[in-house]
């Protein structure tokens, strides 16, 4: 019972935080709220018996993602006089809220309709629990000698998946370096020069 209570509380916090993220226009506050969102989700992962995922989410989601976003904000803020203006996102002119709301509403309704057929939350006889998961739980310890089943599956049974993951991270790192690393000619930013002339 206490599990369900904590679960509902954390889910309510997450919902409130996400709505606040949409409604706030200050980008700095939005990024900080996103860090809180990641930390809350790490707590929820612990409640749902996934401590390994919680570690990763707290370190990578709440830590690295937030730092990356803050760095991007620092690199992209404008040359306004006051600091508050720098972090404000401008209200969108091309976008009316009604079309996105309709799209989101219809998609959400279809997904909720889909949950009718999902086995109940925590059902031990659900199909997901009865096939390959049972094999891992029974055989991971004798076959690999690692008590943490998640580690055993990640590094041993599905080692090739992890190799593919390393390839993806390497590719992303190379792409980021190609995009913003090293020296580039400052030719295309003529707009910035125009702004400077206006001021003088």
């Amino acid at each position: 019972m206490i599990d369900i209570l904590i679960n509902i509380t954390l889910l309510a916090f997450l919902a409130i935080t996400s709505v606040a993220i949409v409604r706030l226009t200050n980008l700095f506050a939005t990024i900080m709220l996103f860090g809180i969102f990641s930390l809350l989700s790490a707590g929820l992962f612990v409640v749902m018996d996934a401590p390994d995922v919680a570690f990763t989410e707290a370190a990578v989601g709440a830590g690295i993602s937030t730092v990356l976003m803050l760095a991007t904000l620092a690199l992209t803020k404008g040359q306004k006089k006051s600091h508050e203006e720098d972090y404000e996102e401008k209200p969108s002119r091309a976008h009316r809220p009604w079309l996105p709301l309709a799209v989101v509403g219809i998609t959400g309704a279809a997904l909720v309709y889909g949950t009718w057929d999902i086995p109940g939350f925590g059902d031990p006889d659900a199909p997901a629990q009865t096939h390959v998961a049972r094999y891992y739980i029974e055989n991971a310890m004798p076959e690999t000698g690692v008590p943490n089943i998640v580690t055993a599956v990640l590094a041993s049974y599905r080692g090739f998946d992890t190799l593919g993951e390393v390839a993806v991270v390497f590719t992303a790192g190379v792409a980021v370096l190609l995009l913003i690393g090293g020296k580039r000619p400052k030719s295309s930013t003529s707009l910035k020069g125009d702004g400077g002339q206006d001021e003088t």
């Binding site: 995922v53 990763t56 990578v60 998961a133 993951e165 991270v169």
Partner: peptide, 21 residues
């Protein structure tokens, strides 16, 4: 079930790579 945990561990790390990109 340990299998979703493994998949999501991979997904989190790939996710931060795509976010960085």
């Amino acid at each position: 079930n340990p299998l979703p945990h493994v998949l999501i561990l991979t997904a989190i790390v790939v996710g931060v790579a795509t976010t960085a990109l």
